[in-house]
Nucleic acid binder design. Structure first.
Length: 489
RNA sequence: GUUCCCAUCGUCUAGCGGCCUAGGACACCUCCCUUUCACGGAGGAUACAGGGGUUCAAAUCCCCUUGGGAACGCCA
């Protein structure tokens, strides 16, 4: 209990950060912060075929976007190791793994195995046919180390396997979220520690690093549960004390399968591009498998940290509901100060080639106008499009309004009034006055009056209140729009 | 197939033996606000997978069944 809290997030860099990984990182982060511990980022890049520096940068950029800052690990900018337990990239720790593999080899707890893929496949087929679990049964497990070394000298290709046969017992894992989990030792076969090229495999590096980096608690996804048995065996073989483990439930898709890239957005980067706020994404994924003690729904990071505890982690899987995420994003977005929203919006406007006024008063006024409509930054751009003359268009949903018999008269009357004015932009009162005059002169009222005007202003019959929308557009532009709509009648 | 995990409204969840004729949130429906649409407000419908125990008392504990999921790699 006195052990200082040190947790880690250990992604393998194979692309942008997946939301499942993000949640694992988040829980580790929250746990560290809550307990005055350290949050460590370790890079599991021992799969040479899949790991790239580009991918590492992607993962790091997502982590940075989320604001999950780590105390030890690759530096967020330079990628250079920071912290006393480096290197933090497993590909740079090869000699360390080799050393412990040798130790296990010498103690007879691991052995060189010369089985080929083909031979293993034959075993597997036979086991399948017999309806048994297919674990490798290596004829080399009882070879002496010298015997194996001699064969290697002759050019033999060998992997190092952990010997499990003699381990006849149940391993009990006291899981922080699942309680006692009992694994029969024969649940796994002799698993690989070192590949034939000498590159270590996940379960081995993970155990070695967690121990060496003095990790106190391991929170990871449920899919790793069976790996825990292998890692427990390694810890036992090396005579090390186990860290605490907590296996978090899986995030599922609509079909209740493990959320995969094949179905919709799954990477943090995608959500960023779609205009989600990191605060909202974190809030949402935090609630997928955890709940605040006071059942808070919309939370700040600080509230999550304060309310976080392992016993509120839910062991059952959670379906990722994009609709709720959107709602949550809207809540966070609308809670932001107007200037802040405007600032966040700029990259999205730029991407859409929107040319908008730059003065602050206009910006704030426009944000207030659209605030109650905003869900993501990306879709907020849609509300701004009609405000850019070059992007003004008449939407299909306006067709019905254009077909009304009074529409032409209303628009012509309004245009006439606008033309007679001299102000650059109408004020709210100005607009209301013109609307009343149109009502009077054209003798049209109700939706037959304001719907055509709305279509002339934004190209569609639904949207924010006209009296606040109109002042955002200059008068000349308004006239040009009316002309366009009249021409389309 | 084998092993392990899981099981409350459609979804996320609260609930850790009596406060539960099961609470909240998203979504849905109705109404109010509103000369549109949103926002907001007020209501509504909807769940303890099934069966056995244990107990005075079970959504809560145990067992079985069923259903779902994951893992069984020289991936992580």
């Amino acid at each position: 209990m006195s052990r200082p809290v040190r947790v880690r997030f250990a992604p393998s860099p194979t692309g942008y950060l997946h939301v499942g990984g993000a949640r694992t990182a988040l829980y580790n982060y929250l746990f560290a912060k809550k307990n005055n511990g350290k949050f460590i980022l370790r890079i599991e890049d021992t799969d040479e075929a899949r790991s790239t520096v580009e991918s590492l940068k992607m993962v790091i950029s997502d982590l940075k976007w989320l604001g999950l800052n780590w105390d030890e690990g690759p530096h967020p900018e330079t990628l250079e190791d920071m912290g006393p337990h480096g290197p933090y990239k497993q590909s740079q720790r090869l000699s360390i793994y080799k050393k412990y593999a040798d130790e296990l080899l010498k103690k007879g707890q691991a052995y060189y195995c010369f089985l080929t893929d083909e031979e293993i496949e034959v075993q597997r087929q036979a086991a399948m046919a017999a309806g048994k679990s297919h674990h490798v049964n290596s004829p080399y497990q009882d070879w002496s180390l010298d015997q194996a070394l001699a064969k290697i000298k002759e050019g033999g290709q060998a992997v190092v396997r952990f010997k499990t046969k003699h381990l006849k017992k149940d391993y009990i894992l006291k899981d922080l979220v699942r309680g006692e989990v009992r694994f029969p030792s024969d649940m796994v076969g002799d698993f690989v520690l070192l590949r034939s090229g000498g590159m270590p495999v996940y379960n081995f590096c993970c155990a070695v690093d967690d121990h060496l980096m003095q990790i106190s608690h391991v929170f990871r996804a449920e899919e790793h549960l069976p790996n825990s048995l292998r890692q427990m065996m390694i810890y036992e073989g090396l005579g090390w004390a186990l860290p605490e483990f907590g296996h978090i439930s899986l995030i599922l898709d609509e079909d209740r399968q493990k959320l995969s890239k094949r179905k919709g957005a799954t990477s943090c980067h995608q959500f960023q591009e779609e205009g989600y706020l990191p605060e909202a994404l974190k809030n949402f994924i935090a609630l997928l498998g955890w709940s605040h003690p006071e059942e808070k729904e919309i939370m700040t990071m600080e509230e999550m940290i304060q309310g976080f505890s392992v016993d509120r982690l839910n062991p059952s899987g959670a379906v990722f509901d994009g609709v709720k995420l959107k709602w949550m994003n809207a809540q966070h977005l609308r809670a932001l100060p107007d200037e802040e929203i405007w600032k966040l919006l700029q990259p999205f406007c730029k991407k859409a080639d929107l040319i908008l006024p730059t003065d602050k008063a206009w910006a704030v006024q426009s944000i207030q106008t659209f605030k109650s409509y905003m869900e993501t930054l990306q879709d907020t751009v849609e509300f701004y499009k009609p405000l850019d003359d070059s992007k003004f268009q008449i939407y299909d949903e306006a067709k019905e309004v254009l077909g009304w018999e009074q529409t032409k008269l209303v628009l012509q009357t309004w245009k006439q009034l606008l033309s007679e004015m001299t102000v650059a932009n109408l004020s709210e009162a100005d607009f209301l006055k013109t609307q009343d005059l149109v009502k009077e002169k054209a003798a049209v009222k109700g939706k037959n009056l304001f719907m055509p005007i709305r279509v002339a202003v934004i190209g569609k019959p639904h949207g924010a209140e006209l009296k606040i929308l109109v002042p955002l557009i200059d008068r000349k532009s308004l006239i040009a729009r009316v002309d366009k709509v009249i021409a389309a009648l």
